Each structure stands twice: as structure tokens, then as C-alpha cells.
Simulated assay, not measured.
Amino acid sequence: MPTTTETLRDALVAARRGKSLIEMASQPVPASFSEGLGVQAEIAKVLKQPEAGWKVAIAEDGLPVAGIMPGPYLKPGDVYEGAIGAELRVEIEIALRLASDVPFRPNQPYSRAELLGHCDKAYLGIEIVESRLANWTGVPFALWLADALGHGGYLIGPELDIKTLDDPTALGCFISLNGVTIYDKPAVHANGDPMAPFLAWANRKQDFMGGLRAGQIVTTGSLCGGVLSPGKGEIVTKLSPLATVSLTLR
């Protein structure tokens, strides 16, 4: 009989290949967050996904976690094709580009300044969250991890000053769909400092998900939560007063 890992891996691989959805209730839940990361790593291996980027986070028990971001990487004005029936959420973020490798170093923790020293660019990033799980509200976090934290695609917007990460609280987040405002609030990061989840992941104790390599994009987490798009069409996002980008959901 297939194991939990094999059953979930095969279901999510088929869903990603077919741009389809699977019912959450029909899937086994990984026994731990680490097992969920292991499933995600297996899926990436089967799909031959490039380790082009990472979305990082801190789980509710304090464990640093990440989702692989293999692409598509969009440009302003591009079209994102979602699966039929999928919920699409928009997140306004600050992304960093690694200029050099960040070696796995569990016994010598990186400092915030040292980690930033490995980065040469910051960008306005827009993540499209599109889970392979239908009706995923309230999904167990270990299952969410297996699905790469619901990653769908990522838009690389204008370059920002890296110092923007030091205090984003003076910024505002705005999102509209087809000219109708769906979000307009001050920027807030769940961990306070947007670097906190990146630093936690750089100082992780296990490395089975893959390394932090030069050229990869690391997104530091949403400044507006996950904003559900009520439909398809033109999305305009602003990190006020710094930058504006648009894309089309289809």
C-alpha cells in the first residue's frame, strides 16, 4: 500500500501537471511539518522543478519553512493563467535576489546584516497564490507545506532600495480588479521584520529542500496578507509611494 508521502506526492504531481484541483478531504495529511516539506521536495524532484526561488515563512511552532518557486516568473503587464475553478490570491511583497550562495551553516547562525550582504537587489514582488487543493480554507499546515505553500506564480516588479526592508510600516498596499478597489491598507508583515522568515530559513537545521544559491529570488512574505481576487481581469497593485505594477488574471 502506498505511503502517505507517495499518495500525496502523486496526487499533487497529477494536479500540477493537469492544472487541476483535488479535494483536500480526500488526501492524507503529513504527520509533521518536516514530512510536509519532504513531500514538497519529492514533488519538485518528480516535476524537475528548478530551484529558481523560495517563499519563506515561519510555522506556528516556530519552525522555519519554505516553498519552492520554480516560476512562472512574470513581468509587469503579463497574463497569469489559473486553473479552472481555482481561488487566486494576490500578495504584495518585497523580494531579494541572491548575489552569492548562502551555504548551509546550522552551527554558525547568520546575522541579519550578513544575510543581506549576500543580496544585491530588492524588488516589488507580487505572488499569485493558487493551491492545488480545492476549498483550502483551514487546510492543515503540513498539507499546505506539501503544496509549496500554495505557490502559483511570481511577478518581478520594479527595483526597490534594499533599505525598504528596514521599516515598511510607512508604506501602503493597494490592489484593484478591473478598476474596483479590493484592498487599500497600510503595509503589515506578519513577523514584523520582513527579514525574519528569510533569516530563520537561512539558519534552518535541515537542508533536504535545497540550498540558497546565487541568482535565486527569495520573497520575504506578504505585506497585505492573501487578498482573494473576486474574479478575473486586470489587477493593479501598488506599494505606495514606491511602485505600481499590473498584470492580468485569466
Rank of each mutant, 00 (worst) to 15 (best):
A52D: 03
K48M: 11
S111G: 15
S20H: 11
K45E: 12
I182Y: 00
K48Y: 05
P72S: 14
T137E: 15
T137I: 15
D120A: 06
P241T: 09
R97G: 01
E51H: 12
A200H: 01
A202V: 06
M24Y: 05
V29C: 09
A44E: 08
K121C: 09
G150Q: 11
G157D: 01
Q108E: 14
L145Q: 02
V245S: 04
F33R: 08
D166L: 13
F198Q: 01
S246Y: 06
W136C: 14
V139L: 13
A243S: 12
S176T: 07
T248S: 15
I94L: 02
L12T: 03
V139F: 11
A148R: 07
A214E: 11
L239A: 02
G125C: 02
L47A: 03
W136T: 11
A14Y: 12
G138I: 14
G231K: 09
I68D: 00
N135Q: 15
T164H: 05
H118W: 04
A52I: 00
R112C: 03
E127R: 05
L228G: 13
C119Q: 03
D207K: 12
S246N: 15
K55T: 01
V79F: 06
P186M: 02
V13N: 04
G18W: 12
G77V: 09
E42N: 12
G233S: 11
P194V: 09
V245L: 02
T248I: 14
A148K: 08
Y110M: 10
V79P: 05
R250N: 15
Q216D: 13
V13G: 03
D120N: 12
K19H: 15
G117C: 05
N203R: 05
L242W: 05
G192W: 06
M195L: 12
G71E: 11
D166N: 12
A113K: 13
P168T: 13
V29Y: 03
V218E: 01
I84T: 08
D207C: 09
E93V: 00
Y73D: 06
D184A: 09
G150M: 10
A31F: 00
Y183H: 14
S32I: 10
L165M: 08
Y123W: 07
A57E: 00
I84C: 02
P50G: 06
P158R: 05
P2E: 08
S176Q: 11
T219I: 13
V227K: 00
L177N: 07
S240R: 09
R16G: 02
S176A: 08
E130D: 10
A122D: 00
A134P: 14
K185F: 09
A59H: 07
P30N: 08
G157Y: 02
N135V: 08
G62Q: 07
L143C: 12
I84A: 13
K238N: 06
P168S: 09
L199V: 03
A148V: 07
G215C: 11
G172Q: 01
E81Y: 03
L8H: 04
A134W: 08
S246L: 09
L63K: 09
A31H: 11
V29N: 07
L160G: 01
P140Q: 06
E23W: 05
A148D: 10
T3I: 01
I43R: 00
A187S: 05
P50N: 04
M24I: 13
L37V: 04
V29D: 07
G62D: 05
P76E: 09
